[in-house]
Design a protein around this nucleic acid. Structure first.
Lengths: 344, 344
DNA sequence: GTGAAAGCGCTAACAC
DNA sequence: GTGTTAGCGCTTTCAC
């Protein structure tokens, strides 16, 4: 029913292979034949059947994106669209298409990854998270399919490529930024600790305190599971302390937003009574009141480099497995200031 | 290199066609053979090559998502991930995979759509926007490939399926909500007027005023192009009026956020001096200070229904082309109140 | 119930 | 430079 290479060949009085060669713009075909063949293609409204090519070439020119479970959560976070935008940009340049996992649970996503890989639907993958006890990465490793992880792998990091920020360093710098302003009592609010990025940021925070000769106070360190009402509880606990922190490092701006709101409701002013520095610098950081000082992790770049890496890896499977660290930048806005003497 | 249907056939002492029948769980194969074949599949680590099946069956079990140009903008808006989540959910249920356009410009996206369609990489598509002078929709119509538009088509709406809110009605209700509170001078801030949704909301706003016997005042109606500094200008203009509005209907919560910030900077309090009702009810609505009263357009449902529609359409191309209207709900929060008498 | 054979639309040796 | 031929891995008549 739809027009094939053979139809074109017949009409142009050449062989199918010639048409195929024209399709791939082979240098062995004379300009004259090329022109002739292209003309008949147009006349017939021919368009290549990608699947047929895929079948013989064993290259799909598609990459799979493995989402963090659950998609619901990861999508609520503006981080996701931004990273996707970075991935898209490079993929589009290299004419790769993007295929998304659709599952909600870890298990559902894993099964889809298997289908993508075994079913040969993608040439490579980008894993949008790095997590302890994850099944996807070990599976991909075992299948020897090109893939790149965004975030530092929890283990075997030398066997795979990853794109990440130096989250330890970034959190250290964020903490030091507060210290340089004069803060000495600095809290930390993280979220799901099973993700590597949280561990790193927590460690960086600790390092920042320690290298400045400050103590790490356990009561100042909290976890925040998004979606629950932990915020209120956390702020309750922090406020109940006789010696309260004057500043907090918060692992994600979505969380910082919630914290700032909660502080506001209790009449605690930001930054006067509490300085806040957050991570990610998504659009939310600019929208908060006051706008947040935030560590810009350059999400777009993270995605862009990740897709560059997989695509390079696809073309050279034996490539040296280097990893890419995207620098972070502190965007100073209005949620941080020098601590109030009165409060010290 | 990878194990094929023939390998399984040989090992199980059956023919390739039998293996194929087992794959599709044909009723003509005895349970005994099925068991035997499945066992050897496991032993050999066989997995179907999807592309081969696609080539012969001419069904990819994939649907393409056509993004609004530019991806950058649409992705910044939390609307996008939420709709994608709805699409994913249904696709996952029906075991369809999702393929995204990656281009930034309208032209780049159009070219990708052509590749998706002609290259037979997808069985159907969802167009995430509805816009005047769009090339994609007419093309899809001409190609006779199943597709669904999210938003009301600018023209030929009877020839295609779409999923939308009743935006005229929703805007009317939002306006009437303010009128019922006692507001009589109500403004409207839209954005890119080339999108159908904007036209609809503007019309609904007008209707709302007119049916309540209020006048439409041109000076109260503004457009807002996201990313530019039009906000300041708009607020300047509104504030400069001798008779200012006491309430505003704003077409998207991202925009409402910007407006509220701008008002705040000028010391105009929300809702006391200016009531605000916005559209979409993304996570931003909850995060603003004060939290916004917003029209919930049920974005997730929009996506879910859209994928249900394309997939049904794929299975029954001759299906009656009905469209789906997703109801909206006004979420009352704290950005609206009765107008202050002093100001009237 | 199961097998043999043809073919989906393309590419890639190998000829010439 | 161009044609011939043999598949890629699967499904699907048509036999039996």
């Amino acid at each position: 029913m739809s027009v094939t290479i053979k139809d074109v060949a017949k009409r142009a009085n050449v062989s199918p292979s010639t048409v195929s060669r024209v399709l791939s713009d082979s240098s062995k075909i004379s300009d004259k034949t090329k022109k002739k063949v292209r003309k008949t293609m147009d006349e017939l409204g021919y368009h290549i059947n990608f699947n047929a090519r895929v079948l013989v070439q064993k290259s799909t020119k598609a990459i799979g994106i493995v989402m963090k479970h659950s998609a619901s959560q990861s999508m609520q976070n503006p981080f996701f669209p931004e990273i996707l935008r970075g991935i898209s940009a490079f993929c589009h340049k290299k004419e790769y298409s993007i295929s998304l996992t659709t599952g909600e649970s870890e298990q559902a996503i894993f099964e889809e990854v298997i289908k993508m890989v075994q079913g040969k639907r993608v040439d490579g993958l980008i894993v949008l998270y790095s997590k302890e006890d994850d099944q996807v990465v070990p599976y991909l490793l075992e299948q020897k399919i090109p893939f790149v992880v965004i975030g530092k792998p929890a283990s075997q990091s030398n066997q795979m490529m990853y794109v990440d920020n130096d989250n330890v360093q970034a959190a250290k710098e964020a903490t030091e930024f507060l210290i340089q302003l004069g803060h000495e009592r600095i809290g930390f609010i993280g979220d799901d600790p099973t993700f590597q990025v949280m561990q790193d940021r927590l460690n960086g925070y600790r390092e920042g305190l320690l290298t400045s000769g400050l103590e790490v106070i356990d009561a100042y360190v909290k976890d925040f599971i998004y979606g629950t009402d932990r915020v209120k509880q956390i702020i309750d606990e922090l406020v109940a302390l006789t010696i309260k922190p004057t500043a907090i490092v918060i692992s994600a701006d979505v969380n910082a937003f919630a914290v700032m709101k909660e502080l506001r409701e209790r009449g605690i002013t930001v930054p006067e009574q509490m300085s806040i520095i957050s991570f990610n610098n998504t659009i939310l950081s600019q929208f908060s009141i006051p706008p947040m000082t935030a560590v810009d992790i350059q999400t777009y770049q993270l995605g862009y480099e990740a897709s560059r890496c997989v695509i390079e890896l696809i073309h050279d499977t034996e490539m040296f497995k280097h990893s890419v660290i995207i620098p972070t930048i502190i965007k100073v806005r209005e949620s941080t200031c020098i601590p109030k003497i009165a409060e010290t």
